[in-house]
Design a protein around this nucleic acid. Structure first.
Lengths: 338, 338
DNA sequence: CTGAAAGCGCTTACAG
DNA sequence: CTGAAAGCGCTTACAG
């Protein structure tokens, strides 16, 4: 238990000695570089394992190899979008093969610059920039290592970005409602200057139009809060044609909608269906009834970003914005299930 | 691609040359080590600044100095407790002075061991272990670098841990209710084998007893969900003495309680006051009415852990479990405010 | 296929 | 107070 400082003792020289080869050969054998006799390779691998050899990544980095580290630069850790993306990144990076430096700039550009310098000083193999919204963000410009932008995409088309396909999210939400027989669909959304609001609306509109329909009432924009979800729903229910479904651009809005509908004693999903976007389980699973919603698959987004970064560090060139799809998670707020 | 690679060009040798001193002296000047003439020190600092010198931390680490990195090992990133702690850690580490490797073991011990090896291979200066509950967790044993346990404390008293004072959390929640005139207090909690449930109950009991009171009905244990919060509240309201306050051991429970009370048309806080614990703002601010709750001050917890680690890396010896207090955040569910 | 040598960029005793 | 020298643990051309 105590006493033994696991690997700090064992160096490549020890492994080489035990395997009866030179350090250079040991290095090549362990790194699958150039040609090494199959027999010696095995001998070295065995020696390394027996000795519990763990390479010193500092030395590797200094000697010019990859450091096995990437920087993840977020601008808003508090938000609930960064975390799933982070988990996806870590997942794709293979647990212990590549480790991630997590830095949160907190929306401060000066801080962001300092963090980038700090990451470069540690010779990271690449950087993943996680934005807080699905809108464009300023490019970091030319850096000595590859960069991939996630969620928020870079405003420079020459950069590589991976984000969410908001249009598709809106479309499949609407399709789900249409597919379950709804025809008088209302729409509650967040801030109108967010691409998330605009593009989801666009996707939903397209879905309706393809059925020769339009929204039952003009879409309502506000902020992304439960309170606005409640207020907007009051508006919808107290005037104009009563909808048979409400498509909410976020789960918070949807939860507000459900609460307002419940207050009026109206049944969900019998009289009105409600669908959200986010699959924020803490909200969606606990609402009454449980909320049908669209999952943005953020972990997959993070994994994809990590894969793109790995290819880039391997020298592959790529650029542009890649948009990933989401999928509907069916619970009870749209369709009655047993 | 190449063009300008900001700092990769400038080395300590460049700085030394420009300042007209040897690399050794430049190193000492920059690191405030041993005695260096004030004039030369300034000269070196100026040269470094002019050249935009950023030390290569890999080289520093190899040469035996600190690496300016710490590992943060979580066992459950998905939970909502790890993130604020993380933010606090990063905050205390001074943004760009010390960077953190974030690793999530996902409750897997094998994975945890591999991650620790990966961290040690990168020569981190120390490790912070963030647990998912406030109960004890297995010690990592003796490692070549200092370790601080947060939230979950180590089962080895020889380790250094920082966690939350659950007894105090329960006590101040009860004190707040008592202070606002409540006398018939009920208690809804989570799983009875969690120290969070037991110790909060204990703290609340002590507060009541100091006023010569006891709970209005036996405490109810279940899981930590909104659904249980609703169900338990139904129980309280449909039988036995009606309470004038419900102390919930989490915000999810409290939100469930509020929903059930609202369903019955009972007024909060007029007829029944409700208080939670967590200050999970997404829940607390959006409930009706907004939820009074106890904030565990997790960011401060993270900052404290980072400070303790820094002291430990500086060679200071310390051990034992430190328990930090929380504070009441007053909203409308306990006291009527304008 | 294998090894001797140089070097990555720093820091730290050790002399002066 | 300053500097020459050795070394941290690896990798990578370059010879054999």
């Amino acid at each position: 238990m105590a006493g033994e400082m696991p690997e700090s003792a064992v160096s490549l020289v020890d492994v080489a000695r035990r395997a009866g080869v030179s350090p250079s050969t040991a290095s090549k054998a362990l790194n699958a570089r150039s040609d090494v006799n199959e027999v010696t390779r095995t001998r070295v691998e065995v020696a390394a394992r027996e000795l519990g050899y763990v390479p010193n990544t500092m030395a590797q980095g200094l000697a010019g190899a990859k450091t096995g580290t990437v920087g993840v630069l977020t601008s808003d850790l508090e938000g609930r979008f960064a975390l799933p993306i982070l988990i996806g990144v870590e997942d794709a990076l293979g647990t212990d093969r590549v480790l991630t430096f997590l830095c949160d700039a907190r929306g401060d550009e000066v801080r962001e610059q300092r963090l980038i310098a700090a990451l470069l000083a540690r010779r990271v193999d690449g950087i993943i920039v996680v934005g807080r919204q699905t809108d464009a963000r300023p490019s970091l410009g030319k850096l000595p290592v590859p960069v991939v932008y996630v969620y928020a995409f870079s405003d420079d088309e020459g950069d590589l970005s991976v984000t969410v396909d908001n249009v598709q999210l809106g479309r499949i939400a609407a399709d789900h409602l249409l597919g379950s027989g709804r025809r008088r669909i209302a729409h509650i959304s967040g801030e109108a200057d967010h691409s998330a609001a605009l593009e989801r609306l666009q996707g939903a509109s397209e879905a309706l139009q393809s059925q020769g329909l339009d929204f039952a009432s003009p879409p309502l924009f506000g902020d992304w809060s439960e309170a606005w979800g409640r207020a907007a729903t009051e508006l919808l229910l107290s005037s104009g044609p009563v909808p048979d479904a409400i498509l909410c651009a976020s789960d918070q809005l949807a939860r507000g909608a459900l609460d307002s509908i419940r207050d009026r004693g109206i049944s969900v999903p019998e009289d009105i269906a409600v669908i959200g976007i986010d699959n924020w389980t803490a909200l969606a699973e606990n609402s009454r009834p449980a909320l049908t919603t669209v999952d943005m698959q953020l972990e997959r987004l993070g994994r994809t970003a990590a894969y793109r970064l790995q290819r880039a560090t391997a020298g592959e060139q790529a650029s542009g914005v890649e948009r990933l799809s989401g999928k509907v998670i069916i619970r009870n707020s749209t369709i009655l299930r047993r």
